[in-house]
Amino acid sequence: MQLDNPLWRYALKVYSHPSVERSCLAAQDLGLHVNTLLLCCWLATRDEYYQSEHYASVLTLWRDPVLSPLRRVRYQVRAMCQEYPELESCYQHLKQSELAAEQVDIALLWQLYLLQPSPVAVDSSAENAAKALAQKNIANYLKAVEMDSTATAVACSNQLVDAVIEHN
C-alpha cells in the first residue's frame, strides 16, 4: 500500500483551502465520504470518469470497520470536551488517528485506481470541462449511495466542486 501517492497529495493540496475544507465537512455531515468526493474531483482533473462499483470494496475493507467507528468516537469525545476540558489531549490524538485512517482510505482508493484506471472522458476540450466532469463524477457517486435525489447533497457537492476547481 502506497500511503504517499498522487491522490493523497491532491487531497492535501485542495483541502488546505478553507472553502474546500468547509465544503468537505458539510458533505461529511450529510454522510458522504469526503475521500470519494475528492477522488471524483481528482479523476476529473485527469479527464477520467468515476465508476462507483470499482471503489465499493473500500467500504467493507476499511471505512465501515475502522474509519467510521473512529470518527464516531472522536465526535463523542469532542462533545465530552465541553464538560471535561481535560479530554482535549485525547480528542487531539483521536483527530490525528482519524487523519492517519483517512490516509489509509485514500491509499486504498489509489490502489484500486492503479488496478483498473478509470475510462477517459471523450470530450475534455470544452471550457470548464474539469468542473463539468467533476459534477458528473459526483453525480455518479451520489446515485451509487442513493443520495442523488437529495437536494442538500447535490447542492453541497456542487459547492465542493466549485471550491476544489477554484483552488486546483
Score class of each variant (00 low, 15 high):
Gln2Cys: 07
Asp4Ser: 10
Asp4Trp: 05
Asn5His: 09
Leu7Tyr: 01
Leu7Trp: 00
Tyr10Gly: 11
Ala11Arg: 06
Ala11Gln: 11
Ala11Glu: 06
Lys13Glu: 08
Tyr15Arg: 04
Ser16Ala: 15
Ser19Glu: 08
Glu21Gly: 08
Arg22Gln: 13
Ser23Arg: 07
Cys24Thr: 02
Cys24Asp: 03
Leu25Met: 13
Ala27Trp: 00
Ala27Leu: 04
Gln28Cys: 08
Leu30Cys: 14
Gly31Thr: 09
Gly31Phe: 13
His33Thr: 06
Asn35Ile: 06
Leu37Lys: 07
Leu37Met: 13
Leu38Trp: 15
Leu43Tyr: 08
Glu48Pro: 07
Tyr50Lys: 11
Gln51Ala: 12
Ser52Phe: 15
Tyr55His: 13
Ala56Gly: 08
Ser57Pro: 03
Ser57Trp: 06
Leu59Gln: 05
Thr60Met: 10
Leu61Pro: 00
Trp62His: 15
Trp62Gln: 06
Pro65Lys: 04
Leu67Tyr: 12
Pro69Asp: 10
Leu70Gln: 04
Tyr75Lys: 11
Gln76Met: 13
Val77Arg: 00
Val77Ile: 06
Arg78Asn: 12
Arg78Ile: 00
Glu83Met: 07
Glu83His: 09
Tyr84Leu: 13
Pro85Ser: 03
Pro85Thr: 01
Glu86Lys: 06
Glu86Cys: 05
Leu87Gln: 03
Leu87Tyr: 09
Leu87Lys: 03
Leu87Met: 04
Glu88Phe: 01
Tyr91Ile: 02
His93Val: 00
His93Leu: 03
Leu94Phe: 14
Gln96Glu: 12
Ser97Cys: 14
Ser97Ile: 08
Leu99His: 08
Ala100Phe: 11
Glu102Gln: 07
Glu102Asn: 06
Gln103Glu: 07
Val104Trp: 00
Val104Tyr: 02
Val104Ile: 08
Ile106Thr: 01
Leu108Gly: 05
Trp110Arg: 00
Gln111Ser: 10
Leu112Arg: 09
Leu114Cys: 05
Pro117Gly: 06
Val120Ile: 15
Ser124Ala: 15
Ser125Gly: 14
Ser125Pro: 01
Glu127Cys: 04
Ala129Ile: 00
Ala129Lys: 01
Lys131Met: 00
Lys131Cys: 00
Ala132Phe: 08
Leu133Gln: 12
Gln135Asp: 09
Gln135Asn: 14
Gln135Arg: 12
Gln135Met: 08
Ala139Arg: 14
Asn140Cys: 14
Asn140Thr: 14
Tyr141Val: 09
Lys143Glu: 09
Lys143Leu: 11
Val145Tyr: 10
Glu146Trp: 15
Glu146Gly: 13
Met147Ser: 15
Met147Val: 12
Asp148Glu: 11
Thr150Ala: 12
Ala151Lys: 12
Ala153Val: 01
Ser157Ile: 06
Leu160Arg: 04
Val161Pro: 02
Val161Ala: 04
Val161Phe: 03
Ala163Cys: 02
Val164Gly: 11
Val164Asn: 10
Glu166Asp: 09
Glu166Trp: 05
His167Asn: 07
Asn168Ala: 13
